[in-house]
Amino acid sequence: MTRLDAKLARIRAGNYRPSDFIIADAKDGDMGPSITAAGPKRERDGSWTRHRTRAEFLDQVRAIVAQDIVDIMLVSASNLEVLAARGTFAGSAVKPAIRANDTTDIWRMRGATYHLAASRPFRTADLAQAARLTDLGLYSMTFCNDIETDLAALDAFAAFRADARAAGFTYFLEVFNPNIACGIDPEQIPFYVNDCIHRCLAGVMQADRPQFLKIPYNGPKALEELASYDPSLIVGVLGGSAGTTRDTFELLHQAERYGARVALFGRKINLAEDPLAIVSLMREVASGAVSPEEAVKAYHGTLQAQGIAPTRPLADDLLITEAPLRQH
């Protein structure tokens, strides 16, 4: 049993405690933006002239796994193959997972406009091959209030569940907000997404249901509604844009407070000046040991001690800039 399995078991049994909050590092950006998702190769003075190479990116993944704080490391199937061959997860309590599909709304390559059209389903990863390395994957859906695109997404989801069952594969379900104008009042979007999640799972038997959800944080009211409606469906939040360091810690704090039990952060970790330091403080915030404001100050203290130039002055990095976090 991995650390993730033990935490999920306690949460499902109603024995959750803040130390059971699940943190995942989403290092699967090569399935979407591709090269730019590896992040900048920063110098200690904060300057950079190129993005990390794949080898440098994988070195960062290995360092975070070795740190042994995150519970899940989410990567592409091809990167998991390389990491597993190097023994990255041997004897580790960190659970490897793959992005099991790559819908068109995450295709954000330089100069591309695919993401401006309604999301369409697509899968690159072969579950039967990936199952040799892990039994957990991320499956993503985006509902757009359009009968044809949403039916296609649901048909693809049904096919995925059948393939996952055949491969002995489990999954967690990511549901984005609509990626196009969809004719719904913006204030109703969070509740439209909540309804879509439960509507698409209502006919799914327990054996084929997701281990947990990954959704945008749409504010406390929508999250509380989703988390309390059916506690057997564990809710997790995604990180979204990089934002300020305060945004990172505030999102963790609010998500845990309003019922989420998982956080899956990509850019908020990968684009940090010191990813290891921010992961360490994420755990402290999630467990309630420090406040978001205290964590920002501690993070800047760590950067100063290491001679790393921060992206923003402390005063600016203490600001909450993401709109849903201001609903608190």
Score class of each variant (00 low, 15 high):
residue 209 R to P: 00
residue 32 G to V: 08
residue 116 L to A: 15
residue 265 F to Q: 02
residue 127 L to H: 03
residue 15 N to S: 08
residue 213 L to Y: 02
residue 254 Q to I: 02
residue 46 G to W: 07
residue 83 L to M: 15
residue 61 V to P: 02
residue 236 G to E: 08
residue 161 R to A: 10
residue 145 N to T: 06
residue 328 H to A: 15
residue 77 A to N: 03
residue 9 A to T: 13
residue 257 R to S: 04
residue 28 D to M: 03
residue 107 W to Q: 12
residue 95 K to V: 15
residue 183 G to H: 04
residue 310 P to T: 08
residue 85 A to L: 13
residue 18 P to R: 05
residue 272 A to R: 03
residue 138 L to F: 12
residue 15 N to M: 05
residue 49 T to E: 14
residue 26 A to N: 04
residue 163 D to E: 15
residue 75 V to W: 01
residue 184 I to A: 08
residue 239 G to E: 09
residue 108 R to Q: 14
residue 193 V to F: 09
residue 254 Q to R: 01
residue 240 G to V: 11
residue 178 P to N: 09
residue 219 G to P: 03
residue 328 H to S: 15
residue 299 Y to S: 06
residue 1 M to C: 05
residue 57 F to S: 15
residue 148 E to Q: 12
residue 212 F to D: 04
residue 129 Q to C: 07
residue 194 N to Q: 02
residue 13 A to L: 02
residue 76 S to F: 03
residue 62 R to T: 15
residue 82 V to M: 11
residue 322 E to Q: 14
residue 214 K to D: 02
residue 57 F to D: 13
residue 164 A to S: 14
residue 232 S to Y: 12
residue 155 D to N: 07
residue 179 N to G: 14
residue 244 T to D: 03
residue 172 F to T: 04
residue 40 P to R: 13
residue 244 T to F: 05
residue 104 T to H: 08
residue 311 T to P: 00
residue 213 L to R: 00
residue 87 G to D: 14
residue 293 E to M: 09
residue 169 F to V: 05
residue 149 T to N: 10
residue 154 L to S: 03
residue 27 K to Q: 06
residue 97 A to G: 06
residue 155 D to W: 08
residue 218 N to A: 11
residue 241 S to I: 11
residue 150 D to R: 01
